[in-house]
Nucleic acid binder design. Structure first.
Lengths: 225, 225
DNA sequence: TCAAAAGTGTTAATAGTACACCCATGA
DNA sequence: TCATGGGTGTACTATTAACACTTTTGA
């Protein structure tokens, strides 16, 4: 019994974060550019090692906060990547998470310190290790999740126009949506509330600003886009 | 650089298998009953520790084979469970997988040696640690997966009747399906091929036996039940 | 005055759901 | 002969998809 555990090997366990943002009609990923050797100039996801006193989920939250300064962020586990030589330096088992953040709210100084940049989802540079697979899987999961649960709002400001919301979903799905059908669906969700505020930035005419009411959603959780 | 890795702690990493089977109209789970202290008489999933020379996926395959003798089994990663005290004995990070096996083909002697039994999905005994959450998540994933991809056939013999197929889906979804609508949908999938063999076991009249043609499926992968 | 985004309904096509009876056979 | 599971089609409902013009206003 004493050596039920300790006959077994132990491994470094890391977390990697696929950090999604949305700005000006397109989905973006926050990536780190290594400015040191080896692999200088290569891109990677933000990652870090799981420490003794923290759960794996908490490690992901900590690593996200180290880069962005953000807490209480929407995150989902993407999966665990455990191939033998996925990290050529050492055996490391990595658990990937994706995060949806409001691109206006992160700590710019921290991001700069880490030499991180927003890349367009449609033009992702080559990434190290198995990070491309992590991103691909996260993207697939986000598509599915965003279609059946109201998680997209995490990528928008608290107040948003319907055009912004539609272009967000177009970016997530990677294709155009019909404006009238889209707005009809939104109208059926009474937890997406029209405020009496008007956005004058996006157009001359001005567009009504909406907000997501989470409490109202919980009362009638019908979501399908 | 030399201690980029080794300033970090290392962890035991295990895999746990949610092994689904299907027999006589109901979904079943293969569970281990501990016949030794502590926690004697308690039930758990089949698990094992990841070893040095194997990927995490390979560890899951190995652990499944240790219990059932089966290789080349359909498996999906369910997720990683990394809470601090999920295993009260030691810090262990566990990656859960579900497996779909044909309940007629496993190695009964091996299963007996491990003190393992098939439990009805509808009457799962209390399980140790976070195994109930693993099972719940696997079940949710199986439902979704089985509705959009032809994975259910892994739970059936190569030849099966439409009644068997329907009762499998009823077990997965946990509710009845309309016979005529079900058979209409199957008829649209020309990769589910009627053979000219008749099953006389399930009924006096006899029912046509069908088979899943994987190659034909890849040519027109339309599946929706 | 015009460019640019906001806003607004109807119709057709498709997919999904509900439903009941006859058939073949072995016991 | 009868109990048991096998096999079949149609009508209705709900959902989804296609589609074009008017409004407002700042430049």
């Amino acid at each position: 019994m004493a050596n039920y555990y300790n006959v077994n090997p132990r491994f470094y366990v890391s977390v990697d974060c696929i950090i999604f943002g949305f700005d000006k009609g397109s989905l973006k990923l926050l990536l780190l550019k290594r400015d040191f050797e080896p692999a200088k100039g290569q891109w990677s996801l933000m990652g870090g090692f799981v420490q003794k006193g923290e759960s794996v989920d908490d490690a992901a939250k900590r690593v996200l906060a180290e880069l962005t300064g953000l807490k209480d962020v929407y995150m989902e586990q993407v999966g665990t990547f455990g191939d033998l030589h996925r990290d050529p330096g050492e055996r490391v088992i990595s658990v990937a998470y994706y995060a949806l953040i409001n691109i206006n709210e992160y700590d710019r100084a921290l991001v700069q310190q880490h030499n991180a940049y927003w890349a367009e989802m449609t033009e992702i540079p080559p990434l190290i290790f198995d990070h491309p697979q992590m991103v691909e899987r996260a993207r697939t999961m986000l598509k599915r999740k965003a279609s059946s649960e109201p998680v997209g709002f995490n990528l928008l400001p608290k107040l948003f126009t319907l055009s912004q919301l539609q272009s967000l979903y177009e970016a997530i799905y990677g294709g155009p949506l019909d404006k009238r059908n889209f707005r009809k669906r939104i109208a059926d969700m009474n937890y997406i509330e029209k405020t009496n505020l008007i956005d004058k930035m996006g157009s001359k005419r001005g567009a009504a600003l909406y907000q997501f009411n989470e409490e109202a959603y919980r009362k009638s959780p019908n979501f399908k886009i």
